[in-house]
């Protein structure tokens, strides 16, 4: 669970809110997956970054669960909520990958 890696080996927990097939949402999911793929082999929603680091990604479709998004205070899509290793919120299509990578400690 707690692997020593470039990102100090901490667990990464992410939740991405998307709006069905909306362009920005589709882009964001693609960008996030690409970012994680360069550092790990995809394994469904469960990914291993580097050797041991665990990545937990949940994708929430606001069109499927609209009230949940409202309760979570998510008003724009796509929104990436970082729960671990730090707490942060990123909005947008994640096209600026370096920014996201730095945030997640994946440089």
């Amino acid at each position: 669970m707690r692997a020593q890696l470039t990102s100090n080996g901490k667990k990464i927990e992410l939740r991405l809110y998307v709006a069905g097939g909306a362009p920005h949402s589709v882009q964001a999911l693609a960008n996030l997956k690409a970012l994680l793929d360069t550092r790990a082999s995809a394994n469904g929603d469960h990914q291993e970054v580097g050797d041991h680091q665990e990545v937990n990604l949940e994708v929430v479709d606001v069109l499927e669960e609209p009230l949940r998004a409202l309760e979570d205070g998510v008003f724009v899509t796509p929104t990436l909520v970082v729960l671990a290793p730090i707490s942060a919120r990123v909005i947008g299509s994640l096209s600026e990958r370096e920014k996201v990578a730095r945030l997640l400690g994946l440089e």
Partner: peptide, 9 residues
């Protein structure tokens, strides 16, 4: 943090 375009969906 803003990283790219988004919408109000």
């Amino acid at each position: 943090i803003t990283a790219g375009q988004f919408d109000l969906n």
